[in-house]
Design a protein around this nucleic acid. Structure first.
Length: 547
RNA sequence: GCGCCAGUAGCUCAGUUGGAUAGAGCAUCGGCCUUCUAAGCCGACGGCCGGGGGUUCGAAUCCUCCCUGGCGCACCA
């Protein structure tokens, strides 16, 4: 980050002197091959047209103008006109001081500039326990919240409770069916019901709590079962999410939205803006005008409103709460729903205010064999079971190591293994190794050096330089992860950092080094441990002191 | 049929807004423990980036047409 900022400032100065405009598409980044130097810039190629000169000639001019910079050791021109910069070691030493001074806040940036963002995720129907697929969305959403906060956004995490629709009636019916069955009544199995064992438990409890339940009018009994079941299941969901380290600031009920008349308000707004119309006894949203394939029904001819209707009202409500950006995290099987929701947001006057992230399927395996999952049929591996078996850290790291929009094989036996197939331990081990080393050092009466030019200059191996440069990149990765809403970038950075640490550990012995060298190395390793902890924190994964 | 997503080393996947000789881990093979955790390090092997055409100084990346796989196309949620 410092290297990038330094170059950007310097280059902007040079360009201003030359009377050239700063090209928007300029990229300052570490080159793929470290042999090219520390930072590579494509600005001369970008300027070619504007300046009316070939890229390499421009590069020559820029290079000449920057030769007096004492922090830069070497500038090369390569390929079609890349400028490759190598910084002086003295520049990299300062990284230690920067990290020390920042402490826990290292990697924080003001990129988000206080933009108010809402991230809505998980939002599973309260009709059964969360399964492993929900876990992926939970890990992603929670990590994204942490990352965006780190990057300077003001973020609120929300869970939307779908407690108003037909699924809830089915839940109520399922519980009542089991209750009657438990009471020994002769009952016919409904064709559409939740078959999970948990329904029986709820049925037993709801009968205890409501003595006359089975004598009531059926609709009334279903309502009682529904509300009771919703309460129990939602409580279970909250417990499971807490155990998974997932935070939601607001639990928003669909039912409350309907009860407050918000859906009707939305209908009225749509009529006013000419985006709603009556036809065939139903009320429609004219979404085709905003890019959708077909118009969508909001109120059916039987008078019921659709799920989409309350979803529009819900998003209207979100925007009215003042969020600049609303992020929805959905299962990938809902991708067909995006165009109509986008259209709805545009109709609400919030074009561009919604961003949808899709989370693809999780293929749950055990020793390579698929494990069946279906809430309705009652066969699933719940999130709780998985977390109990393989641990929250391993599960989260697994989920967050891949792009969200690609399918994921989650093999319980593999995730549980403490092997190289399982990078979470590789990264955690880097942290534990440093902690362990610190303890040993303390026993030997050695401690980390205070900052000072003499100590810093002892960090003079190529391994020191490699480490310092990577540490400097951490804030860039946080920004990139926030900008592209991709927590997996943090995961990959951490694997790189852990690898660099293990290499350092093998090549730069600490305890056997001279006292002042040992102290300098302990100081550097302290920074490394801090960044590992910091990054794992963004993923919601612990950084153990011992392993 | 239409739409969305994917196809990169034997396997699992990265690859930032179009950049240089396409990367990492696992697997395989070969080295490294009298010293801080070998849960580690070092090296080797491994590629028509699904295929064809196009855009340009330059394409895994952008456009187009095919092939393969997943998902979605309700007055369901």
């Amino acid at each position: 980050m410092r290297a990038k900022i330094h170059l950007e400032d310097a280059l902007k100065g040079v360009l201003a002197d030359k009377g050239w405009e700063w090209p928007e598409k300029t990229v300052i980044e570490p080159p793929k091959d470290k042999q090219f130097g520390d930072m590579s810039v494509n600005v001369s190629m970008m300027l070619s047209k504007q300046a009316g000169k070939p890229p390499r000639a421009i590069a020559e001019e820029i290079m000449a103008a920057m030769e007096s910079d004492v922090l830069i050791e070497k500038i090369d021109i390569a390929g079609p006109g890349f400028l490759n910069f190598t910084f002086a070691p003295s520049f990299w030493y300062e990284t230690v001081g920067v990290i020390k001074a920042a402490g826990e806040s290292y990697g924080t940036s003001c990129m988000g500039n206080g933009t108010r963002v809402q991230v809505e995720y998980v939002s599973a129907n309260p009709t059964g326990p969360l399964h492993i697929g929900h876990g992926r969305g939970a890990a992603l959403g929670d990590s994204l919240v942490r990352i965006m906060e780190k990057a300077g956004y003001e973020v609120e995490a929300e869970y939307y409770i779908n407690d108003a629709g037909r699924q809830m009636l089915i839940l109520g019916g399922s519980i009542l069916y089991r209750a009657r069955e438990l009471a020994g009544q002769d009952v016919v199995e409904p064709e559409n019901f939740y078959k999970g064992e948990y329904i029986r438990d709820i049925a037993a409890d709801v009968m205890k709590a409501n003595a006359g339940l089975l004598d009531m009018d059926e609709a009334e009994a279903i309502e009682i079962c529904k509300e009771y079941g919703k309460g129990v299941i939602l409580e279970g969901i909250k417990v499971d999410l807490a155990a998974f380290g997932v935070r939601h600031d607001v639990w928003f009920s669909e039912k409350s939205l309907v009860a407050d008349g918000k859906v009707d308000e939305t209908f009225a707004d749509l009529v006013k803006s000419g985006m709603g119309f009556e036809e065939d006894g139903a009320f429609w949203f004219k979404s085709t005008e905003l890019g959708d394939d077909k118009d969508r029904v909001l109120r059916k001819s039987n008078g019921d409103t659709t799920y989409f209707a309350s979803d529009i009202a819900y998003h209207d409500n979100k925007f009215k709460r003042g969020f600049d950006l609303v992020v929805d995290i959905w299962g990938a099987d809902h991708h067909g729903y995006i165009p109509r929701m986008m259209a709805a947001c545009e109709a609400l006057g919030k074009k561009g205010g919604l961003h949808v992230i899709l989370v693809n399927l999780v293929n749950l395996l055990r020793d390579g064999e698929p494990v069946a999952m279906s809430t309705r049929a009652g066969q699933f591996e719940t999130l709780k079971d998985v977390v109990d078996e393989v641990g929250s850290d391993a599960s989260r790291f697994m989920f967050l190591s891949r792009k969200s929009d690609s399918k994921l094989d989650f093999d319980l036996e593999l995730v549980k293994q403490k092997t190289m197939d399982n990078p979470v331990y590789y990264v955690q081990y880097a942290h534990a190794r440093i902690c362990s080393l610190n303890n040993k050092a303390a026993d030997a009466g050695k401690k980390a050096a205070n900052l000072g030019p003499d100590s810093l200059a002892l960090l003079n191996t190529k391994y020191d330089m490699e480490m310092l440069k990577l540490l400097d990149q951490y804030p860039d990765f946080v920004e990139a992860a926030a900008r592209t809403q991709s927590p997996h970038l943090i995961s990959m950075y951490l694997q790189d950092l852990a690898s660099t640490l293990h290499r350092y550990y093998s090549n730069c012995h600490v305890l056997s080094a001279e006292d002042n060298v040992a102290s300098a190395r302990l100081m550097l390793l302290d920074c490394v441990a801090g960044v590992v902890r910091n990054g794992l924190g963004l993923l919601g994964v612990s950084a153990p002191d011992f392993m």
